[in-house]
């Protein structure tokens, strides 16, 4: 018996992939969350700011509507402010330096057989695994 969570993961994953496919084939854009947001913040995306804002409106708005209709799913997000701030800074700086995150390098890059996308994904998975091991099993802070 396959756990329900795996099936939901696959279904949700297919939805994410279809969203990326529509964004690519209709608008000619890579669906990378860090690039779409980061370009708005540092001004490099000024030329298509409206498209970026529309994408973010959907990405924030639809989960909010789902939460309002059927109850907010648990995020289980830590309530340690120092951890949240350090993690957020690392994610913000790291994804902009590497020019991509899980959606851009992971979903869009791997499926294009992009060397950079595959390399980036391997590095953030390994780094994440190491930090998780040290943070949870050695230091107990995660």
């Amino acid at each position: 018996m396959i756990p329900t969570e795996w099936i939901l993961g696959l279904v949700g994953g297919l939805m994410i992939g279809c969203a990326a496919a529509v964004f690519l084939l209709v608008n000619g854009r890579i669906m990378g969350a860090s690039g779409i947001l980061g370009g708005l913040l540092d001004g490099t995306g000024r030329g298509n700011a409206g498209e970026r804002m529309a994408f973010i409106a959907g990405l924030v708005g639809v989960p909010l509507v789902i939460a309002l209709v059927s109850g907010a799913p648990d995020t289980n997000l830590t309530t340690s402010l120092p951890i949240l701030v350090i993690a957020g800074l690392f994610v913000g700086v790291g994804t902009r330096m590497a020019n991509g995150c899980t959606s851009g390098h992971g979903v869009c890059g791997i499926s294009r057989f992009s060397v950079r996308g595959i390399a980036a994904t391997l590095v953030y998975l390994i780094a994440g695994g190491i930090v998780m091991y040290v943070g949870r099993h050695m230091l107990g802070v995660i």
Partner: peptide, 27 residues
Amino acid sequence: LVTGSALFGAGWALAGLCPGPALAVLG
């Protein structure tokens, strides 16, 4: 690419959020 991805992976592990889900839970 390598340094940025390593930083990103570290932050991802610390909080369990990457940029897409960070926006999805914002509301």
